[in-house]
């Protein structure tokens, strides 16, 4: 037990937390920006899966990281555009349309994987690429902190950058102002000449962009292959993380970090003599509890007003 405690208090654990947090943080930022515009993108689970699949296949067949990145991003943004088209133009309920898209992602990725490799489980027969690790100069020399921060996958730093980018977009650009206006009161926004649908479409496209990066990291950094349903509910946990963070950059980051810690704990607890089913349950139970606690808190605040 004390050995386990020691390993949890070590720098490697901090390193693992950042690793585990990244595929939650990217989609959480994506959910947050779409939520801020008032049309929550709950299709990120599927979008991540498709981007991961596209990235792995393109990298395996072209051996080019840039092409894989482009393919993953195009897939994510394209699917977000499709969702936006169905929701905003064809007036589909965004929740139902997103459920349909998530379902499609589950089948389509296996379908494509089978056509490409003849297998339905994973892409292990292909040699796909991973994004490079980055050793930070100077920072790596700092004791403990350097061990945690340096030597991560480039997309881990990308996730931090995504939070900053999100803050920049929302608070420092005209688009961000429009997004916030549309989310708070679409009618009022419309009345001052803001195109509500176009603004929401931009927000959805951005959410697809962030979700795609999450998917790419998952299959080309976190691990080095694509496997069916490999997102394993991260898209849902991201929705909870964004709402816990009130869709704000710092809040979303902190709640993703919290879930990152919980999920890393689950990984570190795995050798314990507890049935593995319970260990695997931890991320989902923890998220559900956090969501409940948050909802109770929010209800209290509403009552006070």
């Amino acid at each position: 037990m004390s050995a386990m405690l020691q390993s949890i208090l070590s720098a490697q654990f901090g390193f693992a937390v950042l690793r585990v947090m990244t595929p939650l943080l990217f989609p959480a930022v994506g959910v947050a920006i779409s939520g801020l515009a008032g049309s929550v993108n709950i299709a990120l689970e599927g979008i991540m899966l498709c981007s991961a699949c596209a990235g792995v296949l393109v990298s395996a067949f072209t051996q080019s990281l840039w092409l894989a990145l482009a393919a993953g991003l195009a897939t994510g943004i394209g699917l977000a555009a499709l969702l936006g088209f169905f929701h905003l133009r064809l007036k589909a309920d965004i929740i139902l349309a997103a459920i349909a898209m998530n379902m499609m992602a589950g089948g389509l990725t296996i379908f494509v994987l089978f056509l490409a490799t003849g297998e339905k489980g994973s892409s292990s027969s292909l040699t796909s690429l991973v994004f490079p690790l980055v050793h930070l100069p100077l920072v790596r020399r700092i004791p403990v902190l350097g061990e945690i921060l340096s030597g991560q996958n480039v997309l881990v730093y990308g996730a931090f950058l995504a939070v900053f980018l999100y803050w920049l977009i929302v608070f420092k650009t005209p688009l961000g102002l429009r997004i916030r206006a549309v989310g708070q009161n679409p009618d009022a926004a419309q009345s001052v000449g803001i195109n509500v649908n176009r603004t929401r479409m931009w927000a959805l496209l951005l959410s697809g962009f962030f979700g795609a990066l999450g998917g790419l990291y998952l299959a080309m950094g976190y691990v080095s292959w694509f496997a069916r349903d490999m997102t394993a509910g991260r898209g849902w946990i991201a929705i909870a993380a964004a709402s816990l963070g009130n869709n704000m950059p710092l809040g979303t980051f902190l709640s993703s970090l919290l879930f990152g810690v919980v999920n890393s704990l689950a990984i570190y607890l795995a050798p314990l003599a507890v049935p593995s089913e319970f260990i695997q349950m931890i991320p989902y139970v923890a998220t559900a509890l956090a969501l409940t606690g948050y909802s109770i808190q929010a209800a209290r605040r509403r009552r006070k007003l």
Partner: peptide
């Protein structure tokens, strides 16, 4: 508490 039944049921 007006929590999201969608996310809760998915989890």
């Amino acid at each position: 508490w007006r929590g999201s039944e969608l996310v809760a049921s998915l989890l």
